[in-house]
């Protein structure tokens, strides 16, 4: 895979790959990473496939509710050889209510991560969007759990493939307590994830690029590269504070956040 940001795929290939990803997402099966067939695929190609995937979902009546940042920890970025996060889109079909039973039958190999989520009150436009711009445009923050699910066999992928697969986005649960960011220190929020009553992951919010709003600023700047912006009302997840924990039917998950309450769900 090339790190260059040139588009190498033809329009035909982009449509073909977006259909392939849509099939894997909708019918929950694993596919080989896209770069097996297109080794020259770039990050720009990945976003082109993701945009086509989004167009297809929206044309089918799904509603775009927000975005998510991924690869926001230094360790993950180094592992993937990049210095910016990846982004993915979120639709109403991915949302699950707090305290609900989440079906795993329509997922391939789900994992859960704790994140700080932002809800925006103003439009944000890049490039040049900063952490301060993000905070200025934030209505409130809340705790969230993202259920990621790579559609690639064995969670084995490269950056271009994972971007085409919408950053492994699958489901999300927002909950807990909505708060004004001014009342919190968004860098030092402690988080504990419990699975079946046992602590399985811990951390503090500075694990996300030093400050979660930094990830949102980068997300807005990536949107600007694609000629898009982050509209008011968007729900935005800033990236995993904790490592991703696999879940299976029967598992019960509670994410406990300092100052923000908790988010719980079970898997069936």
């Amino acid at each position: 895979m090339s790190q260059s940001n040139e588009l190498t795929l033809s329009r035909e290939d982009i449509v073909r790959l977006s259909e392939r990803v849509e099939g894997a997402q909708t019918r929950a099966y694993a596919i080989p990473k896209l770069t097996d067939e297109y080794p020259a695929m770039t990050i720009a190609d990945g976003y082109a496939v993701q945009s086509e995937l989004r167009r297809r979902y929206l044309a089918a009546g799904h509603r775009l509710v927000g975005w998510k940042a991924g690869l926001t920890s230094k360790a993950k970025m180094q592992q993937m050889g990049v210095n910016v996060p990846s982004i993915g889109f979120l639709t109403d079909r991915m949302a699950r209510p707090e305290n609900s039973a989440i079906s795993t039958a329509d997922l391939v190999h789900p994992r859960v991560e704790c994140e700080v989520a932002f809800v925006m009150k103003k439009d944000l436009h890049g490039p040049g969007c900063t952490r301060e711009d993000v905070l200025d445009a934030t209505d409130y923050v809340l705790p969230a759990v993202e259920i990621i699910d790579s559609r690639f066999s064995g969670f084995k992928f490269d950056l271009a493939s994972v971007i085409a697969d919408n950053g492994s986005s699958a489901r999300f649960v927002g909950g807990g307590r909505a708060r004004y960011f001014e009342e919190l220190d968004l860098r030092t929020l402690g988080v504990v994830m419990e699975k079946n009553g046992e602590t399985v992951a811990m951390g503090a919010s500075a694990a996300v690029l030093g400050h979660p709003a930094e990830a949102i600023a980068m997300l807005v700047n990536i949107l600007a590269d694609m000629g898009e912006h982050l509209p008011a009302g968007s729900f935005v997840m800033s990236g995993g504070i904790t490592e991703a924990i696999p879940v299976k039917p029967g598992d019960s998950v509670v994410a406990r956040f300092q100052e923000l309450g908790s988010v719980s769900m079970r898997f069936v």
């Binding site: 402690g190 811990m202 503090a204 919010s205």
Partner: peptide, 27 residues
């Protein structure tokens, strides 16, 4: 103070080195 859920951020020479939380210590 919520000593169980209070986050811990450790910075080394101006960069975040690691994070943790009170619960890491015996719950």
């Amino acid at each position: 103070l919520d000593i169980t859920l209070a986050g811990m951020v450790l910075e080394k020479n101006g960069e975040v080195h690691s994070t943790g939380v009170g619960a890491a210590v015996q719950g």
